[in-house]
């Protein structure tokens, strides 16, 4: 009976409770002025091919984004935008946080 109670408690928690929290993401450190040049983002937790693919999928859904390059050595992603378009730092930070990773810093190329 005790085992059953423990199991049912865990199942209830699993199916009913909204899941957890990743570490709070740090605010972007770069200036907020939006340019349409490439954006370099330093990402914490970017340690595997799967992580890189996740970010590629997430940014691939954004109309403004032409593509992204991922460098696993430097833990940096470079976002290329379509002509005349961009995303602000807050949006970039939210997209990366929602994908399960943390932004360490954002640098815009003018």
């Amino acid at each position: 009976m005790k085992k059953l109670t423990i199991l049912m408690t865990a199942l209830t928690l699993s199916f009913a409770a909204p899941a957890y929290a990743a570490e709070d993401s740090k605010p972007a450190t770069a200036e907020q002025t939006i340019s349409t040049g490439d954006v370099h983002v330093s990402v914490n937790g970017l340690v595997c091919d799967f992580c890189a693919r996740a970010l590629e999928k997430v940014f691939g859904k954004e109309e403004a984004v032409k593509g992204i390059d991922v460098n696993l050595d430097t833990k940096m992603i470079t976002i290329n935008f379509n002509k005349g378009q961009s995303l602000d730092n807050e949006t970039i930070t939210n997209l990366i946080t929602d994908a399960g990773y943390n932004v360490e810093g954002i640098h815009r190329v003018e």
Binding site: Y20, G45, K75
Partner: peptide, 11 residues
């Protein structure tokens, strides 16, 4: 459910 994730620079 992902209960907790620890994202570090290299891990």
């Amino acid at each position: 459910n992902l209960l907790k994730r620890w994202n570090k620079k290299d891990s």
